[in-house]
Design a protein around this nucleic acid. Structure first.
Lengths: 169, 169
DNA sequence: CGAGCATAGTTGCTGTTGAAACTATATGTC
DNA sequence: GACATATAGTTTCAACAGCAACTATGCTCG
């Protein structure tokens, strides 16, 4: 896609702009993908966060650690960092909080004393058994208006953008 | 779209999961739209932020205020809040910083002394004349691999999700 | 008018975050 | 084995965001 085509995709009804002389640069944030995407993702994240914040006293970082633990038997803080793209300080604090609440346990890794293996406790598992279906139900409601094709295409486009992001750096 | 179809869209090659007994709930964050979307948007935002952070010493809030000013002749802090969904304290501080740097000017609104009309200074305009094309070029590179159709569909799906978000609350 | 309520914007306070410094363990090289 | 270097995780510190309290102005209705 070239810039012209993109412009056309974005054009609104009341669009009277024809190549303004460059004394004035305009940018409509509502037609600027990074802003729109971030805005949407923020609101989704925020709304969902209330689910685990208000009802389970988990912040986003803690929830992500738990979610990864739900299907990784061998997990360390480092892995969480690379999987979730979160800063290691943030991960470290999330793990601390989860351990203090008795939701996870950590044991020094036998092969490398610097690492700590993370595991769900029974309490942690019990919490996830309740929380995960709620999160999935919420997601289902969010995407309920999309057709299967739209959903698939969305994922495809997201994958493309992710790949392109890595290329751009 | 129903849950079954969505599952199918998400299924990966190595997917051997068939309705596990509920003693263990699993959630793959990589197949969880809110997470994926947030992750993508965050990385895009982060990458773009470097553009105006490192090279123009603008944070995201300040950049958004400037961008809105670039095509709104009449703007107040309140409007920025509602347009951008940012907290009024955040907007207030962004405006303060921009004024101190001489990029914007604010004058008490004649019809209501509580409000302040915001305007770009010449310096602010000059900065945008350089920054906006860079931001647009970056965006163009990001979406360069999408076809026009994919781009249009992405925007459509985003609109749908936004509407659905408001319904869910 | 004036008492109470509403609104635009600011400020104080607190919690969260990320970068960088730090600790402790591991590895590699001589 | 000893010293240099790398790595996992923690802690410190400064920036920032968000809530709530506050100020100042405007509005409403008696």
């Amino acid at each position: 896609m070239n810039t012209e085509e993109r412009r056309a995709s974005l054009a609104r009804e009341g669009d009277e702009s024809l190549a303004e002389p460059s004394t004035k640069q305009e940018l409509d944030l509502n037609q600027f993908l990074p802003y729109r995407l971030n805005s949407l993702a923020d609101r989704i994240s925020q709304a969902l966060a209330e689910l685990y914040e208000e009802r389970y006293q988990l912040n986003i970082a803690q929830w992500r650690v738990l979610a990864w633990l739900s299907h990784c038997d061998e997990l360390t803080a480092k892995k969480v960092c690379s999987y979730t793209n979160m800063d290691k300080a943030r991960v470290s604090r999330a793990i601390q909080a989860l351990e203090e609440r008795g939701l996870i346990r950590r044991t020094p890794a036998p092969e490398d004393q610097r690492q700590q293996d993370l595991h769900l406790t029974a309490a942690g598992q019990a919490l996830l058994v309740k929380l995960i279906p709620e999160a999935q139900a919420w997601e289902a409601e969010l995407v309920a208006t999309l057709t299967a094709g739209e959903y698939r295409d969305l994922l495809n486009v997201m994958r493309k953008l992710e790949r392109q992001l890595e290329r751009i750096g």
